[in-house]
């Protein structure tokens, strides 16, 4: 067989599979978002209602806006905290040596943990009666002794953020260590010979060369923060009230608990739009010319 035919045959199954499992549901979601789309109604009653689902979300649903703000706040806080802390940890661990490379090995563990399980374990640790963190915070800051963390809107949000960054910092640290190690040794050494040290070396030489990897980290983390569901579901289930209800959680509840698939699909599509921009930005880094 000629390569010209073969090369398309080889990609065909994968393209079909990706189409069936990702593209089709995306398009079908868009279609659903223009219908009544109630789970308890027969197909004949799922008529098209134009942009009604969208206008409903924008104009009539404070809960939608609540979850938008929760998601944005959650994304802003987790992205900035993970990036800064992961960068710090990467700088600490990058030089190597026995202690450092040992710790580097361990960094993979939290990321291999199911996010749902992370949610469970943080719920466990913030239990006001016998949680470990609760005892810890209570010891150092008596204000927090015996506080029902997950019953307070602000504290519950804080716990969600802590669980999230606990799971992500180690992995993003690994990414940044990879980035640091690909900075040519000579440029660092040249800068040292030229008289730069410490902070100046970091600011003038390391940081600019790390910028592309840092950008990848920020984009990747933003995408995953915007999508957050598993941990929040297991940790607070959106509560107390709707204080930690992210968009994914909101969509899940409306679509599958309340059976409003059409409405959920419209909110889901509102979520796809920022993803398109982030993906575009990400793809630029994947295809960048070295």
């Amino acid at each position: 067989m000629r390569d010209n035919t073969l090369k398309y045959l080889l990609v065909l199954p994968a393209v079909l599979l990706v189409f069936a499992t990702a593209i089709w549901p995306l398009v079908e979601s868009l279609r659903l978002s223009f219908t009544v789309g109630r789970l308890n109604r027969p197909p004949s009653l799922q008529q098209y209602i134009g942009f009604e689902n969208y206008t409903w979300a924008f104009l009539e649903e404070p809960a939608f806006w609540n979850s938008v703000w929760v998601t944005l706040a959650y994304t802003a806080v987790t992205v900035s905290l993970t990036t800064v802390l992961a960068l710090g940890l990467a700088l600490l661990l990058a030089p190597g040596g026995r202690l450092r490379s040992g710790v580097q090995t361990l960094l993979i563990l939290p990321f291999a943990m199911s996010p749902a399980l992370i949610g469970v374990s943080f719920r466990f640790m913030f239990n006001p009666e016998f949680g470990l963190f609760d005892a810890f915070f209570g010891f150092f800051m008596p204000v927090f002794a015996g506080v029902s963390w997950l019953a307070d809107p602000v504290l519950a949000f804080a716990v969600c953020v802590m669980a999230d960054i606990w799971g992500w910092i180690p992995f993003l640290t690994l990414v940044l260590i990879g980035g640091l190690s690909s900075i040519p040794r000579e440029t660092i050494e040249a800068a040292q010979v030229d008289g730069a040290g410490g902070w100046r070396l970091f600011r003038d030489v390391t940081l600019p060369q790390l910028a592309p990897v840092l950008a990848v980290v920020v984009i990747l983390k933003s995408i995953f923060s915007l999508k957050t569901f598993d941990q929040v579901f297991m940790l607070t289930n959106g509560g107390p009230g709707t204080a930690t209800q992210t968009l994914s959680h909101y969509i899940y509840f409306n679509g599958l608990k309340y059976g409003q698939i059409g409405y959920a699909a419209s909110v889901a599509w509102l979520m796809v739009i920022p993803m398109i921009f982030l993906t575009y930005a990400y793809a630029k880094f994947v295809f960048r010319k070295d």
């Binding site: 549901p25 979601s29 994914s248 698939i261 979520m271 990400y282």
Partner: peptide
């Protein structure tokens, strides 16, 4: 496109 499908929120895919 293949890369992008990974970034689509899972809730969007699961509804249909």
């Amino acid at each position: 496109t293949i890369l992008a499908t990974q970034f689509v929120p899972a809730v969007v895919i699961i509804l249909p």
